[in-house]
Design a protein around this nucleic acid. Structure first.
Length: 552
RNA sequence: GCCCCAGUAGCUCAGUGGAUAGAGCGACCGCCUCCUAAGCGGUAGGCCGUAGGUCCGAUUCCUACCUGGGGCACCA
């Protein structure tokens, strides 16, 4: 019996109490089922009686009595105690709890995932770093978080498209081109340009491709430097992200949006919606009608579309591709975008609360030797994603970037990262998985085969076995909450807990027979439990894009 | 000035209104003739920033304030 099954049973008990005329409340569609910290509080607990007491105009304990009597009769429930102000403390019959292990193994890689798809198409845009330099550490966080979110939302039943917006038009690209050209010519990089060592490398490659670069007319040389430099840089970004295990379904080009007339069409649409006005020679969008602090310029007085205009066109483009909900994962330095993005959504006639969502993630800071490290892309003083992966590997990098809530700023200690010791919790989780793999190899060597159907799960009565079964039963709810709250770190924290529960089980519950002992029914049951744990660890790590090693 | 995020153990951080607030790391004491000790057990360590409020119940929700970080362009 899973927590969800139990919640259904409680709802049914409320329904019967109401039908019997003992309780006068609206029957809730869902109720809270908790896993108590204190083992004396049963396998599961519910404060439902406390929550219904007010509506029922009865003391909580009286409501609890009514429900307990009906719940006790439900299949799989051994005992229901009323405790404290009116908590229902529920103890399952051993077999009902043990069934979780069988259920996990039967479901395999799909355990924890939503059983039916949801009819919502989500577009999640993340990273979208300017292609004027390598992927920085700040972007690396959004790469890890965004990619995990795509996987988690998908597991939760949504149809999700991950997207990277390439800002390949505009002033920054010109500056980048000028920097590349200057480096190629051996001139000093302009003050407004990009100063990282990578610019020289790009310049060398461009020069090798186009030995005539420096002989070209100024404008043409600049265009070639910008275009080729951008292509090379973007290629590097893509391969870095790819090797980081981060996948994008769509690479959207701002330039392509411009070239296809997307901006003009967006302005037309907005004008048709009645939110566009002309002033001071520029074309404006009246975003203040929808809560923005000030109206925004769409077309500058020089005839150029603004970046804001491109944003509007891009939003329109995403919606036009059939996405119901357009999510932006942005760094805190883009917090000011929320108002204008909501206004854009509203100006197109959408509901910003339904069709749009902006997730703001806090910054990444670095410390080295206890001192904060300043990073600037233009100055070329930053740690890249590539550097980080070189130092600690993909697994540790992804895990450390994703295990913290995006709401709090992330402090990475470079000394610690460089050390690559087991101080990272990812090893703790991976080790539990490897340990189980080893155990299962041992079982195989003894000629034991896993029998999900034959195992007698009622034998799993040890307290540590109960802990493990309840932890396994949580996984679907963890995915659900990680998806709905957009918090991939919840999966990581859960895996750490599950690994801990397994290690404690393993410490006191012998699985394989010792010496000449024969394997018994308990061996089968525990092997099933171990295999179920391995599956959940593996499924969970997969959601984070972290490998589940069979050996360490 | 206005807006957003954070403030919880020595450090880094979990905790979507529930019972005695947790984890990792760090400190100290133990546990491998036995399925992986990258593990386990134990000890120490907390006015959950402050003050009010709502509630049967607040670390969680509301208000004000304090501290730290970020943001408020016809820039990209």
């Amino acid at each position: 019996m899973s927590p969800a099954d139990l919640a259904d049973a409680i709802v049914a008990a409320v329904g019967r109490a109401v039908a019997d005329g003992d309780l006068d409340v609206p029957v809730p569609t869902t109720v809270t089922v908790e896993r108590p910290k204190n083992p004396e509080h049963g396998d599961y607990a519910s404060p439902v009686a406390l929550q219904l007491a007010k509506a029922a105009r009865r003391p909580p304990r009286a409501v609890a009595e009514l429900l307990a009597a009906r719940l006790t009769a439900a299949e799989g429930i051994a005992r229901v105690d009323i405790a404290g102000p009116g908590f229902l403390n529920i103890t399952l019959v051993g077999a009902a709890l043990g069934e979780v292990a069988r259920r996990v193994v039967r479901a395999g890689a799909s355990y924890g995932h939503a059983e039916k798809p949801r009819d919502v198409r989500i577009n999640l845009e993340f990273v979208s770093a300017n292609p004027t330099g390598p992927v920085t550490l700040a972007s690396a966080r959004w790469a890890a978080v965004g990619d995990a979110l795509v996987r988690i939302l998908t597991a939760a039943g949504y149809s999700v498209g991950g997207e990277y917006y390439v800002n390949d038009a505009g002033v920054q690209i010109s500056r980048f081109g000028a920097s590349v050209l200057a480096a190629a010519a051996g001139r000093e990089i302009p003050a407004e340009g990009y100063h990282g060592a990578y610019v020289a490398e790009i310049a060398t490659t461009v020069l090798a491709e186009r030995p005539d670069l420096l002989e070209l007319p100024g404008d043409e040389a600049l265009a070639v430097a910008a275009q080729r430099g951008l292509t090379l840089m973007l290629g590097e970004i893509r391969s870095t992200l790819e090797s980081f295990g981060v996948h994008f379904d769509t690479w959207a080009s701002e330039k392509a949006l411009h070239d296809a007339g997307g901006l003009e069409r967006a302005v037309e649409d907005l004008r048709a919606q009645g939110h566009v006005f002309d002033a001071d020679g520029a074309v404006w969008l009246r975003t203040t009608d929808f809560g923005d602090d000030k109206d925004r310029v769409l077309i500058k007085s020089d005839g150029q579309g603004t970046y804001f205009c491109a944003d509007a066109a891009y939003y329109r483009d995403k919606r036009g591709r059939g996405f119901d909900r357009v999510i932006y994962l942005l760094g805190a330095d883009h917090h000011g975008y929320i108002g204008r993005l909501r206004a854009i959504s509203a100006c197109f006639g959408d509901d910003p609360d339904v069709n749009l969502e902006v997730i703001i993630g806090q910054m990444v800071t670095l410390t080295r030797g206890g001192e904060p490290v300043k990073m600037s892309k233009r100055a070329g003083t930053f740690l890249t994603l590539h550097d980080l992966v070189d130092a600690v590997g993909v697994d540790a990098a992804r895990y450390s970037l994703v295990r913290q809530s995006h709401d709090s700023s992330l402090e990475l200690n470079l000394d610690l990262i460089a050390r690559q010791t087991s101080e990272n919790p990812v090893f703790y989780v991976q080790y539990a998985h490897a340990r189980i793999s080893s155990l299962l190899r041992g079982a195989e060597a003894l000629g034991l085969t896993l029998s999900p159907e034959g195992a007698d799960v009622a034998l799993l009565t040890h307290p540590r076995e109960g802990d493990l079964l309840r932890a396994l039963g949580e996984f679907p709810r963890v995915i659900e909450s990680a998806a709905s709250l957009r918090g991939p770190h919840r999966v990581a924290r859960y895996l750490e807990e599950l690994a801990g529960v397994y290690h404690r089980f393993y410490d006191v519950c012998r699985v394989l027979p010792q010496g000449d002992e024969p394997a018994g029914p308990l061996t089968d049951a525990r092997l099933l439990l171990a295999a179920a744990t391995q599956l959940v660890l593996s499924n969970g790590l997969a959601l984070l894009g972290v490998s589940a090693p069979d050996r360490m």
